Computed example of a mutant assay.
Amino acid sequence: MPRLEEPCWSCSCARSIDQESKKLSTCLTRRAGEAMSSLNSLLSLAYSTLASSQGRSLIRRSLVLFAVGAFLALVLNLLQIQRNVTLFPEEVIATIFSSAWWVPPCCGTAAAVVGLLYPCIDSHLGEPHKFKREWASVMRCIAVFVGINHASAKLDFANNVQLSLTLAALSLGLWWTFDRSRSGLGLGITIAFLATLITQFLVYNGVYQYTSPDFLYIRSWLPCIFFSGGVTVGNIGRQLAMVSYSTYLTKEKIEVGLSN
């Protein structure tokens, strides 16, 4: 009898242990699944919040850059028209500052693209721009850019070559004073090259024209204006990006503090 009962007892004990282990493993699996689902939901929520915050910041910066570019285009183009440097056909002249209707939106769009591109390139290269990062420096850069454009319309030299060399030196001085980054120099040269090609195309097709052209269909100093304008708008875009990032970090710290 003892030998018959002992196997029965060991068999029932083993079955109970197996059942308990299965229950425990099922419970652990369910808890792990719940934890993973909670983690995934938290990650998706954090990602969506970050994406929406970055999206709103991108839209705000684009609108500000568009407005700045359109305003500068109206003011600077008015100066060129008053000095008879730039001539538009009479049928395309609008009432706003006696400028062509397409000038402000085109320049505003270009300013938005350039202003967003500068901090993006800095981030891609891993070289954050930290030289003179304050609004006072940005405003001085804008003032120097307006002065360079003003000089292109009002300074009288013996020939256009002397004027072009003078404006080239002023444009490089603007970059050295307010930028000093390799990415800023490279993007400024690229912007000047592409903008000059587009301007040549527009003048060739009779959209508007320059008086006394000496560089194919345009004035030889125009690439200097595009270069200094690209550096100026790039500094504005960098400053806006830095302000947006600082605001986002402040909000994150406040939310973390409230949650704790």
Rank of each mutant, 00 (worst) to 15 (best):
R238G: 01
Y245F: 06
S62R: 07
S212Q: 15
I198E: 03
I142Q: 15
L43C: 10
S37W: 07
A94C: 04
T250W: 03
D179T: 08
K251N: 10
L42Q: 15
A195Q: 08
S16L: 13
A35Q: 14
K23H: 07
C107F: 15
A100D: 00
I198D: 01
R83I: 00
S10C: 07
G230T: 13
K132V: 09
V243C: 10
L43E: 14
T211N: 12
S57K: 09
S52N: 14
I17M: 06
C11Q: 12
Y245S: 11
Q200D: 14
R140T: 08
P7M: 09
E91M: 02
M1G: 15
L28H: 15
C106V: 06
N235G: 13
A14P: 04
G257C: 11
S98F: 03
Q54N: 13
L167Y: 00
P128F: 05
A46K: 14
L79G: 05
S44H: 09
E5F: 07
R180K: 13
V138R: 07
Q239M: 13
R83G: 01
H129W: 09
S16F: 06
S244T: 06
V68K: 07
G188F: 08
N40Y: 12
R61S: 09
F131S: 08
A70H: 06
S57I: 04
T232W: 01
R30H: 11
G173C: 02
A111E: 13
W101F: 02
G115Q: 07
S183D: 02
L58D: 15
S57G: 13
G126Y: 10
S62N: 07
W101V: 07
V113Y: 13
S10M: 05
C27T: 05
R83Q: 11
D122H: 12
I218G: 04
S212N: 15
E34P: 02
L76P: 03
F71R: 04
T177R: 04
G126K: 09
Q19Y: 06
S37D: 09
S123V: 00
F88N: 04
L194D: 01
L202R: 10
F66Y: 14
L45Y: 04
T232R: 00
R182F: 15
A112Q: 05
R60V: 10
T211W: 03
N235R: 15
K251Q: 12
L155A: 01
T29N: 13
V146G: 03
G234W: 13
S220Y: 00
L216G: 07
A241G: 09
S48M: 10
E5S: 09
I121Y: 11
G115R: 08
T211P: 03
S48C: 08
C141K: 02
A143T: 07
C106W: 06
C141N: 09
I148S: 00
C11N: 09
G173E: 02
F193D: 11
F97W: 00
G115N: 10
Q209C: 11
S137I: 04
V207Q: 06
V113G: 09
G55Q: 05
P128C: 05
L39S: 14
T95D: 06
G206L: 13
T247M: 08
G108M: 06
